[in-house]
Design a protein around this nucleic acid. Structure first.
Length: 502
RNA sequence: CGGGGAAUAGCGCAGUUUGGCUAGCGCGCGUCGUUCGGGACGACGAGGUCGCAGGUUCAAAUCCUGUUUCCCCGACCA
């Protein structure tokens, strides 16, 4: 007997373990021999490439260019911004030597101590800032609008595939502006790009908001973020856009002569999303049978599965599959040809089908002799229960629409889930009850987003933190006069999103 | 980094307490045959320096020391 679900355990039985099993069953990534560092497998990397492709277009459309800066940052650069140092020092990988020599026992040991240690970038504000300082002399040199696709390293104590790895892939935008206003506009504009991408491509609803002082990027004046709700109702910070004020410009010496001929310090921003988004995508959409890829970023839209009973049928069925795949590829979905593959592997059809279910390919098209004879196809739509029969012509013609519908349904389902587990809470007892599991020994999935009035005070924020609840953000859309702080009863600044988080 | 658990074939595990024949099982993998529309079956077969390094012993997967990696909880964080 096969298991009732393709993934064991189910989300309800053991959510963290379910997550890992989905990553593995979908062949997205696996752990490597290096502590905290993952191998991203072809299916996972193809997903990342699609995500990257979309984001890259969006960055270009908003006037940005790509460039590349060094992996290593001289320690002295890093020391320049005090808050930044404090925030990242504990998780820096440091290069102290530049040569290996064999010792007597046939082992290699590092020799050649560097005069100045290099840190492996945890983020690139300082090295890019130092470069920009040379590039900027006049207001005519501004703005600088640059993005970098790169890997960064943060030596985290506890890692989880995609969600928090020691090395991860990301993009980091770094911009320089003449005025505070312009830098703020950039910060908000890029947050909006992230929201657009998360919701319209990943089908992952997000709340846009501003971080509290305690949750801010080290060295930033303000950090804006997009926050998503995972299926265990915890929050995931899915992207950030920082208004850095003049802090980093001052530290790096980014100055320019303004229109009046006076020397001024520039205004900078930085913004990033990472492979963590893949973790978010999984925890937003995957079910107990594995991953479900949102069509717009799926590595393949369709897998064609030939069902061959007898050798005599093989040629006929395969020819029909080929023709079907070719005609599918002539269809345009989301501005590009539909991505379809045929899985010719000689495996039993059930096994093969389940592999694709777990990988989350949006549409599985099963084709056997029966379909060939009646010019039909039998289609599994990954976010639906039942497989459906179509005439071939109808299915091919409707494929773009089916994919678009699926994308829409996935977003709607995720949005409903979030709404179902979001509550406005004004009362402290209710607040605490909301975040307390019924079964303390083996906590069940509970809680969600509490929209509660907050006075803006760090003391009240810490009262929440003590219960592992954090203020995810102050939503940009929040109404202002929202009553009394749920903790102290003082006048609130507006409702904050409280949640347990990754 | 603190607490807990783990590492034996690709995956999941037994064996370790009480050291002792040639280290087993299920799935997967290979070949052949029968199959094939929601996880097929039979026969034969391949695959392991028991995480790594030391030590104790006539003898180590098993005992001791160190170390690496993974998982869970906590602190920290994208």
């Amino acid at each position: 007997m096969p298991p009732a679900t393709a993934i064991t355990p189910t989300r309800e039985q053991d959510y963290p373990e379910w997550y890992q099993q989905v990553v593995r069953a979908a062949e997205l990534a696996e752990n490597s021999a290096v502590r905290g560092c993952m191998v991203i497998k072809p299916w996972g990397y193809a997903l990342w490439e699609n995500m990257r492709g979309v984001l890259d277009k969006m960055f270009r459309a908003t006037g940005h260019q790509n460039a590349y800066f060094p992996l290593f940052i001289p320690l002295s650069f890093f020391e320049k911004e005090a808050a930044h140092v404090e925030g990242f020092a504990k998780e820096c990988a440091v290069v102290t030597h530049h040569r290996l020599e064999a010792d007597g026992d046939g082992k290699l040991k590092p020799v050649g101590v560097l005069d100045e240690p290099l840190i492996v970038r945890p983020t690139s504000e300082t090295i890019i800032g130092a470069t920009y300082a040379k590039w900027v002399q006049s207001y005519r040199d501004l703005p600088i609008l640059i993005n970098q696709w790169a890997n960064v390293v943060r030596w985290e104590m506890r890692t989880r595939l995609f969600l928090r790895t020691a090395e991860f892939l990301w993009q980091e935008g770094h911009t320089v502006h003449e005025t505070e206003k312009e830098a703020w506009e950039e910060t908000r504009k890029m947050l909006e790009v992230y929201r657009d991408f998360a919701e319209n491509y990943l089908a992952m609803p997000v709340i846009t908001g501003e971080k509290t002082a305690g949750e801010r990027f080290p060295g930033a004046v303000a950090t804006l973020c997009i926050e998503a709700m995972m299926q265990d109702r915890k929050a995931l910070q899915a992207g950030t856009s920082h208004f850095l004020g003049q802090n980093f410009a001052r530290a790096s010496g980014i100055q320019f002569q303004n229109r009046e001929g006076k020397i001024e310090t520039a205004w900078t921003t930085s913004w990033g999303v990472s492979t963590r988004l893949i973790g978010g995508l999984i925890m937003t959409h995957a079910d107990d049978n594995g991953l479900i890829m949102p069509p717009r970023v799926a590595p393949e839209h369709i897998v064609v599965l030939p069902i061959i009973r007898a050798d005599a049928d093989r040629e006929k069925v395969l020819a029909y599959c080929e023709e079907t795949a070719a005609r599918l590829r002539e269809q345009i979905y989301d501005g590009a040809p539909v991505r379809a593959v045929i899985d010719r592997r000689d495996l039993s059809s059930g096994d093969k089908g389940w592999q694709w279910v777990k990988k989350g390919v949006p549409l599985r098209v099963e084709i056997g002799l029966r379909d060939v004879e009646k010019d039909g196809v039998f289609v599994g739509i990954r976010n639906r229960e039942k497989k459906e029969g179509f005439s071939r012509a109808e299915f091919i013609a409707r494929t773009p629409e089916i994919l678009a519908t699926m994308q829409r349904e996935m977003f709607a389902a995720a949005k409903k889930f979030r709404a179902d587990h979001t509550r406005e809470i004004d009362d402290l007892a209710e607040f605490e009850q909301f975040f307390t599991p019924q079964n303390a020994d083996k906590p069940e999935v509970h809680g969600g987003f509490a929209l509660s009035p907050w006075c803006g005070g760090a003391v009240c924020e810490q009262r929440a933190n003590a219960q592992k609840i954090t203020i995810r953000c102050l939503p940009l859309a929040a109404e202002k006069a929202a009553g009394k702080c749920v903790f102290c009863g003082n006048a609130s600044q507006g409702r904050a999103v409280f949640a347990k988080a990754y």
